[in-house]
Design a protein around this nucleic acid. Structure first.
Length: 419
DNA sequence: TCTGGGGTCCTCTGCCCT
DNA sequence: TCTGAGGGCAGAGGACCC
């Protein structure tokens, strides 16, 4: 099989997007993420990476490593707009585009050769278009499958150096005949699905590199890791990945969670926050025309211990009120006396609202059947006058209405949310 | 003064039913 | 009637990804 799968990954996307609109910051250590001490770094410029800062590091630690770094609060809506324009560029070259996140996608260009050239030429064109139209750079991996293409991208990326970023290859191809040569020296942590826990388990049986993993008997690997993960890793170590590039993906769950600038102790306040998040989840469900059957509540306490509770409803719902009522009863099973650091409300077991769902009297609002209509009316008012214009009294905090929008607190609480 | 948010998938456990 | 095995399912939580 020839290398025809492209993995395109933007270089330090959030930071680079900020530098486009704030060019005066170029050359400085710039970080995007949660600016409060409870936040994390979402993206670091290559100048900041030279200080040992990396994404997912706590903002507190990043500040200590580089006090002079410029911290920018993320602007999810802006990155979303830039991302859409980049995805449009991909669409020019193939209809088979699978976005993984705002800054990353797989493209199957197997059928694009006659129109657009070889995979390498297409990668060159995409990089040129993105640079020209958005002022951003990206790296591209090309390989016979998604797993190898993604790994190849890592080899194409710029690296941080003491005097600024050291340019990478930009494009890296892994052809069929060089797969093992490419994979064997890599650490097992480079494989998709191998995190810290699996690294530890593998090292206990003497496996630290892909070559060692490949040489290990499949049956022993399955014994050590279980059938699913064992055979999955065995195949990856041999460069086998049969997943196709999926242009459309079905949403399976949806949630909102939030870490608070200070721990919450007041049960009434916790209830208000749960209703606020439930409201947002309901709004998003209605926005995409879905109902959910399972209500999930996540609670993280002061000591970072985390509890997940869920309940499956007899009838699916898209009502924030119904979600909130169920989430609140789930809260009763968790002892929150020591203080709540994070709350999350989610829905799973989703189905399109057009799939002939029967809603019981209770699921559409119980004693207030008109509430369902009210929620839809609120959606319309939000659309027209903004999310601060109106909301249920149950979602009102002492700071006023704080409706939760997707991505509004993507990387943790900011300084401005602190009292 | 540390450790986000939004997802997916998997495994384990307990319960119910046959 | 009691008991155990086993399947199905829901719930909890771990692990991983970006």
């Amino acid at each position: 099989m020839t290398a025809h799968i492209l993995h395109v990954d933007m270089d330090a996307f959030f930071v680079s997007a900020e530098l486009v609109r704030r060019p005066e910051l170029r050359g400085s250590p710039v970080l995007v993420g949660g600016t409060g001490n409870r936040g994390v770094v979402a993206a670091a410029s290559y100048e900041a990476r030279a200080y040992g800062i990396f994404s997912a590091m706590s903002t507190f630690q990043a500040r200590r490593l580089c006090p002079e770094a410029i911290f920018l609060e993320g602007d999810h809506a802006y990155y979303g707009r830039v991302s859409s324009m980049i995805m449009e560029i991909f669409d020019r070259y193939t209809p088979l585009v699978e976005p993984i996140s705002l800054d990353e996608a797989f493209l199957d260009v197997g059928g694009s050769k006659r129109l657009h050239g070889t995979p390498f030429e297409i990668a060159q064109s995409i990089r040129r278009d993105i640079k020209h139209e958005q002022g951003l750079t990206c790296s591209v991996g090309i390989a016979p499958n998604k797993f190898l293409a993604k790994l190849a991208t890592e080899g194409a990326k710029p690296k941080p150096g003491p005097k600024g970023p050291v340019p990478g290859l930009g494009i890296k191809i892994v052809e069929e005949y060089e797969i093992q040569m490419f994979l064997d020296p890599l650490p097992v942590s480079a494989l998709w699905g191998v995190g810290p826990a699996t690294v530890t388990r593998l090292s206990q049986i003497g496996i630290t590199t892909v070559l060692q993993l490949r040489s290990f008997p499949r049956a022993s690997l399955i014994k050590a890791l279980g059938k699913t993960q064992g055979s999955h890793l065995y195949r990856l170590a041999h460069g086998v990945d049969e997943r196709n590039v999926e242009a459309s993906q079905v949403i399976k769950s949806l949630s909102h969670e939030e870490t608070f600038p200070e721990d919450l102790f007041d049960v009434d306040r916790i209830g208000t926050e749960i209703f606020r998040m439930s409201d947002a989840v309901g709004k998003r469900l209605r926005g995409i025309g879905f109902f959910g059957s399972t209500v999930n509540l996540k609670v993280r306490l002061k000591d970072f211990s985390t509890f997940n509770r869920s309940v499956t409803l007899a009838n699916p719902t898209d009502s924030g009120k119904v979600i909130g009522r169920n989430a609140l009863s789930l809260l009763e099973t968790v002892d929150v006396a020591e203080g709540v650091r994070l709350l999350g409300v989610g829905m799973s077991n989703l189905a399109k609202s057009s799939q002939g769902l029967q809603l019981s009297f209770d699921e559409i609002g119980g004693d207030e059947p008109e509430w369902r209509e009210a929620e839809r009316a609120i959606d319309l008012i939000h659309e027209r006058y903004g999310s601060q214009s109106i909301g249920a009294a149950s979602t009102l905090t002492e700071k006023g209405l704080r409706p939760k929008e997707k991505g509004s607190q993507q990387w943790g609480p900011s300084d401005s949310l602190k009292k």
